[in-house]
Design a protein around this nucleic acid. Structure first.
Length: 405
RNA sequence: GGGUCGGUACCCGAGUGGCCAAAGGGGGCGGCCUGUAAAGCCGCUGGCAACGCCUACGUUGGUUCGAAUCCAACCCGGCCCA
């Protein structure tokens, strides 16, 4: 460990919303031993997005200072599912699905984390071995009143919304993870504060030193209002094509430009502040600032220069109104043709540009469909499949497919 | 276990025998504007080779020419009592 305790403290807590407690972290650092910094990941959704990146970058700083990043795959809990947001948000996964997701997860996390100083654990390792008696003993450690202290629970309780007993168990299980891996520090989004604090309680009850809890700000999604999440489809995945990332980043509300820059680009606090200042002063216009932000973020995950290339592509498509260089292709299913003719609405549907035939018809009627740049407005338009070979169909402003027969 | 209120489309929420594929809002989508921003305006928003048919108002069964609406049983949730 080359750096002094004060310097480490400053680096590790930079950007954190909550630090509970700084004095404890200092004490841990003073021992000069590598700390174990835990981060739990939910493998029910495979894509890592730039919102996750905020906390992953914090974790990386621990690694860079010689501490150990302990990633916990919540494979056990993922297999049980989570009733909190009504079935759909977190469906129960099979062991295979959870494993498969976890695998891609780490491949992605690897774009941010260092391969060394990394420990990966699955919580099925210990949770799967617990019997009912163990679970009951764990459940006895917290009270209903304590659980209702979590704002999310309190709100739902007041609103008369259902809260399952199982949900009360989750914070305890996550806290138990901390006990099992002997975490010194736990990272997470601000929405994880309550759960991570539970880890402290349990560790102390087990005679361990309580983990320090650091929370990272939650990044707003593309809509600018709700937090970035896969289920709301308002995210920028760290592995999607650079051009897509750039485009999505350009679509965020102006008010979030500096926030994205400082949270998702991996820029140093000083750099982020400098950027914010320029934007505020008007040295950078809102569009220029946003472009700079988008370039910076694409670079961060795709490599130096990727941002510029993505911007060039962006200009090509949205300034020159050209067709993108890379576009998905769809081979027509000949079976869909009737008497040698195929309906455009049907083509849209099979190419994934419309969810149904009916939606395809609606899009056409509304003037949202173009074939090689020419708007088609007849919902009953039909074609001979061969005539559609190599044709580019555009739906709306940003979706294209090249047709093959 | 008893009482009571409730379960409607992606979400919230009206509708309490035919005029209901179901008001209104949110969200989403398309168009105009534009900087793939915001604000604004207009339109669409169950499915089906489609002026008709099918499916859908928790589930199942019933009453009726006709049910989201009435009846019965069941399932699920909130609250009160035990």
């Amino acid at each position: 460990m080359v750096l002094g305790v004060d310097e480490q403290l400053a680096i590790l807590t930079a950007g954190a919303v909550d630090v509970i407690h700084e004095a404890e972290l200092r004490k841990k650092l003073e021992r000069g031993q590598p700390l174990r910094a835990k981060l739990g990941l939910d493998p029910s959704r495979p894509d890592i997005h730039i919102g996750h990146a905020v906390v992953l970058q914090m974790l990386r700083r621990f690694q860079e200072l010689g501490h150990v990043a302990v990633l916990i795959v919540g494979d056990f809990t993922a297999q049980v599912g989570d009733p909190s947001d009504r079935s759909s948000t977190r469906p129960a996964l099979s062991k295979e699905e959870a494993d498969a997701n976890a695998a891609t997860y780490f491949e992605q996390a690897g774009r941010i984390l260092l391969p060394e100083n990394l420990e990966i654990r699955h919580n099925s390792e210990w949770l799967g071995a617990m019997g009912i008696a163990d679970v009951l003993r764990l459940a006895a450690r917290a009270t209903v009143a304590q659980m209702l202290a979590r704002d999310d629970f309190e709100r739902r309780y007041k609103e008369g919304k259902p809260i399952s007993i199982m949900e009360f168990l989750y914070p305890l299980l996550q806290g138990w993870d901390s006990v099992m891996v002997r975490a010194d520090v736990e990272l997470g989004g601000t929405d994880q504060l309550f759960n991570n604090l539970m880890g402290r309680t349990l560790q102390e009850q087990e005679g361990q030193e309580a983990q320090v809890v650091l929370t990272a700000p939650l990044l707003e999604g593309l809509d600018g209002v709700q937090k970035m999440s896969k289920s709301l489809d308002n995210y920028v995945a760290i592995t999607e094509p650079p051009a897509t990332q750039f485009g999505k980043l350009m679509s965020i509300p102006d008010t979030l430009t500096t926030r994205y820059f400082s949270l998702a680009s991996g820029a140093s606090p000083a750099e982020a502040q400098d950027f914010a200042e320029q934007a505020r002063a008007g040295t950078l216009s809102p569009v220029e600032a946003k472009r700079a932000m988008a370039r910076r973020i694409v670079d961060a995950y795709q490599g130096e220069g990727a941002g510029e290339a993505a911007e060039a592509e962006f200009n090509r498509v949205f300034k020159s109104h050209d067709v993108p260089t890379d576009l998905p292709e769809h081979t027509l299913e000949s079976a869909a043709a009737v008497d040698g003719q195929i309906r455009l609405a049907n083509v849209l549907q099979q190419a994934g540009l419309a969810k149904s035939n009916a939606e395809g018809r609606r899009l056409i009627t509304q003037g949202g469909v173009r074939i090689d740049g020419e708007a088609i407005t007849d919902p009953d338009a039909t074609y001979v499949p061969a005539d559609l070979d190599q044709v580019v169909i555009q739906v709306g402003r940003r979706r294209w497919v090249r047709i093959r027969t």
